[in-house]
């Protein structure tokens, strides 16, 4: 057991280290922060922003119009912003997951891993933990900025919804990364892995759209399987165990498929 843990740790450390050695992760993080920062300002202070909407609602009441439903600025801001981070992440995640196995295959280092006393599971788990850690490191600074804005809210808001929505964000990212890791294990080309992962994400959006569009039992059945639907629930502060189980299932599925794909690779390699 400790040996397994050590192996996972070794893979994890090497993988994390590789993010610091290559310029690509820096560029990805920089673009993510730039866009994340821009949208933080735009959603909060922009002409169509949350504060502007609240001010307009106030004005309307002062001018004697019937009061609109109560408007929780901090809540709406958190929901809109984390939702946006989720969409933004969808463009970033394929770039994070594309190299996980494709690079190993290209460099021939998969042969080293496959002939070392490490199980495919340990390798896949170490890699997934590393890439999720990197994603966390990308989200954390934006969380700090957001919490500064939320800290100015009057009356003060609890941190529950804020943390829950970000938990949803990280779970969504981990699910997509796990599936992206599997796709990366299928090819030697990082570009192909990125494109295929993005296609998968489009499919997830499609599933979400279909779930919303279809009435009745079928629609709600698909909605239960939609990652994005459950992510939206998390951003709205709704925690349900079903969503958590779904995310964890997708992560487990990604890990399982990756381990199997590496195993079968050895059987069909020419």
């Amino acid at each position: 057991m400790t040996l397994l843990f050590k192996n996972i740790l070794a893979i994890y450390q090497r993988e994390l280290q590789s993010y610091f050695a290559s310029p690509l992760p820096y560029i990805i993080a920089a673009v993510f922060w730039l866009l994340g920062g821009f949208f933080l300002v735009a959603i909060l202070l922009g002409p169509q922003g949350i504060l502007a909407q609240a001010a307009m609602a106030d004005q309307a009441v002062q001018m004697g119009m019937p009061p609109s439903p109560p408007f929780d600025v901090a809540y709406e801001f958190n929901k809109a912003y984390v939702g946006l981070l989720g969409s933004l992440s969808m463009f970033v995640l394929p770039m994070l997951s594309m190299g996980l196995y494709a690079d190993e295959r290209k460099q021939g280092t998969l042969e080293l891993l496959a002939t070392s006393p490490v199980t495919n599971w340990a390798v896949a788990l170490g890699k997934l933990l590393a890439v999720v850690s990197f994603y966390l490191a990308m989200v954390l600074p934006l969380m700090v900025c957001q919490s500064i804005a939320l800290g100015a809210a009057e009356p003060p808001t609890g941190s529950g919804v804020f943390l829950l929505s970000h938990l949803g964000l990280v779970l969504l990212a981990a699910s997509v990364l796990a599936l992206g890791m599997f796709i990366s294990s299928l090819t030697e080309s990082t570009v192909l892995a990125a494109i295929m992962t993005f296609a998968l994400i489009l499919l997830l959006w499609l599933v979400d759209a279909v779930a919303q569009g279809l009435p009745g039992v079928v629609g709600s059945a698909i909605a239960h399987l939609s990652l994005l639907k459950h992510f939206t629930d998390f951003t709205e502060g709704i925690f349900d165990t079903g969503g958590l189980v779904l995310f964890l299932s997708f992560i487990g599925l990604g890990l399982y498929l990756t381990a199997q794909s590496i195993e079968t690779l050895r059987f069909q390699r020419s």
Binding site: Q107, G108, T109, L110, L112, S116
Partner: peptide, 19 residues
């Protein structure tokens, strides 16, 4: 089978770990 972005020592240390 080499990781181009690692130093010789770092790489050997990693291999020693997984072995």
């Amino acid at each position: 089978p080499l990781y181009p972005d690692m130093t010789v020592q770092g790489f050997l240390n990693f291999v020693a770990k997984i072995k």
